[in-house]
Design a binder for these strands. Structure first.
Lengths: 332, 332
DNA sequence: CTGTTAGCGCGTTCAT
DNA sequence: ATGAACGCGCTAACAG
C-alpha cells in the first residue's frame, strides 16, 4: 500500500480510503490511486485490515453436511445476502456430530468471525458456552431450540412430520411406518421421528413401526433396504414416512424393482422437497421448506445484528419461524 | 494472550509456543498455560498470527456450484486432507461463470490464502494473470488445461464422453443423441459434447443430434424435457448421452411417464456417477470419476507445494491424471 | 526451554 | 479532503 501511495503521490491512508468505496476521496485522487493499483497489480490485504479494524468480514457457517442440497441451498442463501456487504462465508461440516460441531466452533472462533450461523438447536455444553461468550451474533437455523442462544430461523421438524402423517391419515392410510437413521446424532431426524410417533399415537394407529438404518445421513440405498425390512416385519403397512426424500426415493426405486406398486401396494413420503422428489416417477409426496430462504433470512438477521452493534443499539434476539408445507404428489 | 501469560507466570511468547503443538515448551509450563487458557476462556486469534507469520492457513477453493454432489465431494476431499494440517478452506461458487470466477479470485486473494484450488482449466486473462502472480501454489482440477497455470489434477472430459459413446456403439446402438446445456459457460459440459461429436464422427454415425437446453447446470426437469425434444426431432434415436447424471435421470423418469421403455425404446446414459444413478430404476449407465479423490489429491499436491516453499525447494508443477471409468448399468 | 525486541499491513483517531 | 501517529494481537528472530 505504501508503494501504491508513493506512485500516486498520496499517503497510504488515502489509498486505504480510496479502496473502501465509502472513503471520502476526491475523484481525481481516486483515479490516480486506482491507476497505480492497476499498474502494480496491488491487492488489498484484508487480514491486516481485520486486525486493525477489529472486523474480519467473516461469517462462520456450520452445516451438518455440504453434500445435501437442503443445506447447500441454505449456504447459498446466506452467501447471496452477505456477499453484497463484502462478507465472506467460512464453511464447516459437522458431519451430524455435536462433538465435531464443538471442535468446529472453536476452530472458527479462532478466525474471529463477525457472526456465526449454525444448523441445529442442540449443542454440547462447551459449544454453547463458547457461542454465548464469543460476543458476536449467533443464528441457529433449521430448528426451534428449546433454549435459544441468540437469534433463530427455523421450524418445528416434529410438527412438520406430524402434519405429514395426519395428511396420510386423511387419505385413508391406517398402518403407517417410519424409516430413519439412528436418531442420536441427527437431531432433526429424531424430531421427525418424534412427530411421527405423536401423530400415530393421537390418531390411534398401530405404533412402533419404525426402522432405524445406520448413521445419518441415511442414503438412498439404505432407504431401499429399510423399506424391505419394514414390509417384511409388518406386511400390513400401507404407507411409509421417510426421514428424508433421499431415503424415500431409494425406497420407491426398490419397490419398482420388486414390482410393488407405489402407492398401490404401499404409499411412500419423504421430507425436504429435494429435486429428485419433484422429478421421480412417481413424484414424491414430501414436506417442503424454503431452504434458500432460511439462509437468506439468517443472513439478513445477522446483518441487522451487526448494524445494531455498530450503532450501539441493543440487538434483541429475533426468532423467525419459517413455514413448511406438505406437498402431496403421486407417491401417496 | 498477555493475560494468559501473566496468569501462567510466563511470557506471551511461551504461550504462543504452547498453543502451537510444535513449540518446544516443558510439559509443566504447558500445563500451567493450558489451565490459564481454560480459566480465562481464551481463544487464539489466528488473524493476528497470520499477519505476523505471513501464513494465513487459508486454502481458497473455487467450485462451479456447491449444490452439485460431484463438486461438494471434491470439496470434502480437500477438507479431509488440509484440516489435518490446520488449514481452513475458503469456499466460493463461480456459478459456472468465468467472470464470476475472476471476481472470486480477486476477493480470495484479498484474504491472502496460502494456496488456491480451482475447478476448471479455462479462465479469463485477468484471472489467469492474478493466479500466476499471486505467488502461491495453484491447483486446477476436473480438467486437463491446455496451458496449465501450475499444478493439475484432472482428466479429459472429452475422452471420457468419447469412451462412453464407443461403449454404446459396441452394445449395438447406432443412432445416438446428446443432451446438454448451452455450452459457452460450462466448459466441462462443452468438452463432453465435443467428445460425443468426435465419437459419432469417427464411428460414421449420424451427427448433430444434440439438444441444448438452457444454462448449466441443466436440471433433472430440463433433462426430461430435452429428451422429449430429442425424440420428437429424431424419432429414430436409439440412445441418448446426457451431459450429467441429473439430466439423464430426468430423461428416464420422463420416459417412465410416457411409457417409453428404457433401454427398450431408448437407452440413456449420464455422466458423474451420482448417487441417484446407482439407485434409480433402471440403474443408470454413466462415467465415474472419484470426485473425492480429486479433492484429496489436489489437497496433497498443495501441501507438498507448501512444504517445498518452506524448504526452499523448487516446487515443480505436477500434473496428475485421474482415471475415469465407463460403468455400464441397466439403462443401456 | 524461555524471554526480549521488533514488526507484520493495515485502519482508527485525531489533527489540519 | 488528506496526513501522521499509533496500535490491533500475534510470531520471527535472536539472545540467553
Amino acid at each position: 500500500m505504501a508503494e501504491v501511495a508513493a506512485r500516486a503521490g498520496v499517503s497510504a491512508m488515502t489509498v486505504s480510503r480510496a479502496l473502501k468505496s465509502d472513503g471520502a476521496v476526491s475523484e481525481e485522487t481516486r483515479r490516480k490511486i486506482l491507476t497505480a493499483v492497476d499498474e502494480l497489480g496491488y491487492v488489498l490485504d484484508l487480514s491486516a485490515g481485520a486486525l486493525s479494524s477489529k472486523r474480519t468480514g467473516f461469517v462462520a457457517v456450520l452445516v451438518p453436511s455440504i453434500n445435501n442440497s437442503n443445506f447447500s441451498d441454505t449456504a447459498r442463501g446466506i452467501t447471496e445476502i452477505i456477499e453484497g456487504r463484502g462478507l465472506q462465508m467460512l464453511l464447516g461440516y459437522t458431519d451430524y456430530d455435536m462433538e465435531k460441531e464443538e471442535q468446529l466452533v472453536q476452530a472458527m472462533l479462532t478466525r474471529r468471525p463477525d457472526g456465526i450461523i449454525v444448523t441445529d438447536g442442540r449443542h454440547t455444553p462447551k459449544a454453547r458456552r463458547m457461542l454465548r461468550s464469543a460476543g458476536i451474533p449467533v443464528v441457529e437455523t433449521w430448528d426451534l431450540p428449546a433454549d435459544p442462544i441468540d437469534h433463530v430461523v427455523g421450524f418445528s421438524n416434529a410438527e412438520a412430520s406430524r402434519a405429514l402423517v395426519h395428511r396420510l391419515y386423511q387419505k385413508g392410510y391406517r398402518n403407517i411406518g417410519f424409516i430413519g437413521g439412528a436418531s442420536r446424532r441427527d437431531t432433526r431426524g429424531a424430531d421427525r421421528r418424534l412427530g411421527y410417533t405423536r401423530a400415530v399415537e393421537e390418531l390411534g394407529l398401530p405404533v412402533g413401526r419404525t426402522i432405524s438404518f445406520g448413521n445419518p445421513p441415511i442414503s438412498m440405498e439404505q432407504g431401499g433396504q429399510a423399506l424391505v425390512h419394514l414390509i417384511q416385519q409388518w406386511p400390513d403397512v400401507d404407507a411409509a414416512v421417510c426421514v428424508s426424500d433421499l431415503s424415500a426415493f431409494g425406497a420407491i426405486m426398490e419397490c419398482h424393482r420388486r414390482g410393488w406398486a407405489v402407492p398401490g401396494r404401499i404409499a411412500i413420503a419423504g421430507f425436504g422437497d429435494f429435486e429428485v422428489s419433484r422429478c421421480a416417477w412417481p413424484r414424491i409426496t414430501t414436506v417442503a421448506v424454503d431452504c434458500r430462504n432460511i439462509g437468506r433470512e439468517a443472513g439478513r438477521i445477522l446483518l441487522d445484528a451487526l448494524d445494531a452493534v455498530q450503532h450501539a443499539h441493543p440487538p434483541a434476539p429475533a426468532t423467525l419461524i419459517v413455514p413448511f408445507e406438505v406437498i402431496e404428489r403421486e407417491s401417496t
